[in-house]
Amino acid sequence: MKIKNNIAVSDSGFVFNPATGESFSANPIGMEIMELLKKGTPTQEISNTILEKYETDAPTIDKDLHDFIQILKQYTLIEEHGKA
């Protein structure tokens, strides 16, 4: 699971999908996760990174990360394993 290569994520949280012309806005932690996903980081590792850096707990992150990835899929910003 990976953010599609052609998706542009700017430092200000502006996300653009050239394939559809749609644009999005993400908060800083959302961008951070997208950057990690872009590099192909496994979700468990993403959870750990966030947990080290932020004041929260594992169940909260797992739930929020899962929800965030669902939304990325819904917006077709993510490519599933095996697909081009």
Partner: peptide
């Protein structure tokens, strides 16, 4: 901590 968020503009 703030939960991750993305929304369509």
């Amino acid at each position: 901590y703030e939960r991750p968020m993305i929304k369509k503009l």
